[in-house]
Design a protein around this nucleic acid. Structure first.
Length: 502
RNA sequence: GGUCGGGUGGCCGAGCGGUUAGGCAGAGGUCUGCAAAACCUUGUACGGCGGUUCGAAUCCGCUCCCGACCUCCA
């Protein structure tokens, strides 16, 4: 599988062939959450997107160092000039807790949710508060290089000077320099900043602020944006391969990150910038702040006016996989239901596939069928190589489903299949679904156990007897009653099978 | 207001110059005691108006809607 991987780079606005800095290795930094409240679904979509990207890079054999931060200080709410407050600090004050208790609580919740969605842990998950020293050093470098200025104990990044000298400011977010500079946010008043587009890299803490560290400039705390610049540099180097995050971070967060890195080391941080698109609900961005939101928990239980029933984490993950990471995805009840069925169909087909045994009979081998299977598998990887196009890859995978089910049904003779092709189909199908897409089999609600297994075996045996005696009313009564109890019975040529209804 | 990105069949969602994307729902059929499942067949959709082209959902112009960013957000 040494096809060329192409990645859409926000910097150039084009798909580019991916060439890592160091052969065989990838350094990837993804902006993680600010842990001041429960994760919402939009976060989950972004991290699921990058999870698949991470998984596919691993699948291609890269040695990946995947760094995803936890922001637990510095993220301000409101405008700095009009009394901004750190999100964590604010929450801590409101709940009368230590800021670290807040950060810890929501970090745990975040991890649990990531686990529920079956995302792999990043290689390193650094926190902003654990890297104050690195951030102070970076501020110092920026000041030394003339791109920062100190006022009243706070340090600001000089965007005007930077823009004039470096010509990279605005490049990532596609903003025109003139527009940026012309911008007159009239929050005027006691503005410490020289220019509205300047941003704080070190903030002097007012007496009520709960998070404070000593620095050359004041007792204070680092600005938002800075933690990512400092930590990506620390763990991936001044320049690394991929930087990702949600699309809403392009500006100002990522733009400012680039500026800081340039300001500190005169080099670009990442070579490929990747941005996931927003999860919508009711056609609008899901957002904590305006209430257009549904929590993952509500989605699981169905306790929300936006859905008629609950959905399992894997059905939701599958739903996300069905759209491209760069497209918006509109969450609706109907779409979720469709995804759930599709997901179940895929998993059932996988089960069928695993139960197939090769029958070698070279006289019966069907060349066309074997070729079709091989080519569909190749298409899956081909699609993934094209900027991680999951919906297309999934489409190719789904074209294999009727083939597998026909073999399983004996509508197609298994001996038509070359045994090597069958083995490869099994191996690849499994690897694609579980290793790359990161899906997993979910336990049936209620679950089975040995006792129910035996009971059901007995019941089906009795029913089989009734059927043999053509006692259809008895057979149907049993089936209908089980149906009411939430157990589905299916008859096929070899007998009957049962499953808990999903 | 500025800057981007969209409008695809009943729904979701790919594609972005010539090919059936795919999923779900619908219709017809095969199999089956019946049912379910599965399998087969089926849909001529690309906001509107012009233009370029042998050929446009895909390129260009105009127009109408919608969304995102510009302020905290993944």
């Amino acid at each position: 599988m040494n096809n060329q991987l192409k990645i859409y780079n926000t910097l150039s606005g084009k798909k580019e062939v991916f060439e890592p800095l160091v052969e065989g290795r990838v350094g990837m930094y993804v902006c993680g959450p600010t842990v001041y409240s429960d994760v919402h679904l939009g976060n989950c979509r972004t991290f699921v997107s990058f999870d698949v990207i991470y998984r596919y890079l691993l699948h291609k054999g890269y040695k990946v160092r995947y760094v995803r931060n936890i922001t637990d200080v510095g993220h301000l709410e409101g405008d700095i000039d009009t009394g901004a407050e750190d999100k964590i600090s604010k929450k801590a004050r409101l709940e009368q807790l230590e800021p670290m208790e807040i950060a810890h609580k929501y970090t745990l919740g975040f991890h649990q949710m990531m686990d529920v969605f079956n995302t792999l842990s990043p290689s390193i998950e650094p926190r902003a508060t654990g890297h104050i020293l690195e951030q102070i050093e970076m501020v110092q470098k920026i000041v030394d290089n003339g791109f920062g200025y100190v006022i009243n104990g706070s340090v600001y990044f000089d965007t005007v000077k930077f823009a004039e000298e470096k010509e990279v400011y605005g490049q990532l977010s596609g903003r025109k320099l003139d527009d940026l500079l012309a911008e007159t946010r009239d929050l005027k008043k006691q503005d410490e900043k020289r220019h509205p587009s300047d941003f704080a890299i070190w903030i002097k803490a007012d007496p009520s602020h709960l998070m404070r560290w000593n620095s050359p400039w004041s007792i204070g705390f680092p600005g938002w944006h800075l933690e990512c610049s400092a930590m990506s540099t620390k763990y991936l180097g001044s320049t690394f391969d991929i930087h990702g995050g949600g699309g809403d971070l392009k500006f100002p967060h990522h733009e400012n990150e680039v500026a800081q890195n340039f300001g500190a080391c005169n080099c670009a941080p990442a070579r490929y910038w990747m941005h996931g698109n927003m999860l919508l609900m009711n056609g609008k961005k899901m957002s904590k702040s305006d209430g257009n939101t549904i929590t993952p928990q509500q989605l699981f239980t169905g306790e929300s006016p936006h859905v008629t029933k609950g959905f399992t984490p894997m059905a939701i993950r599958f739903f996300m996989l069905q759209s491209h990471y760069r497209s918006t995805l509109d969450l609706t009840d109907e779409a979720l239901k469709a995804a759930e069925k599709g997901y179940n169909r895929l998993m059932e087909s996988y089960q069928n596939l695993m139960n197939l045994d090769a029958v070698v009979d070279s006289t019966k081998e069907n060349q066309e069928l074997n070729t079709k299977i091989k080519s569909l598998l190749e298409q899956v990887y081909h699609n993934l190589d094209d900027d991680f196009n999951c919906p297309r890859a999934l489409a190719s995978l789904f074209e294999l489903v009727p083939v597998i089910n026909s073999l399983s049904n004996k509508q197609l003779d298994i001996s038509e299949l070359n045994s090597v092709v069958l083995q490869s189909l099994k191996d690849n199908f499994r690897s694609i679904i579980f290793d790359i897409f990161g899906l997993k089999e979910e336990d049936n609600p209620g679950g089975e156990n040995e006792v129910t297994d035996q009971l059901m075996g007995l019941i089906l045996q009795l029913r089989q007897q009734a059927r043999a005696e053509k006692n259809w009313s008895m057979a149907d009564t049993i089936r209908d009653s089980l149906q009411v109890a939430g157990i589905e019975v299916k008859d096929d040529k070899d007998g009957s099978s049962w499953s808990l209804k999903k």
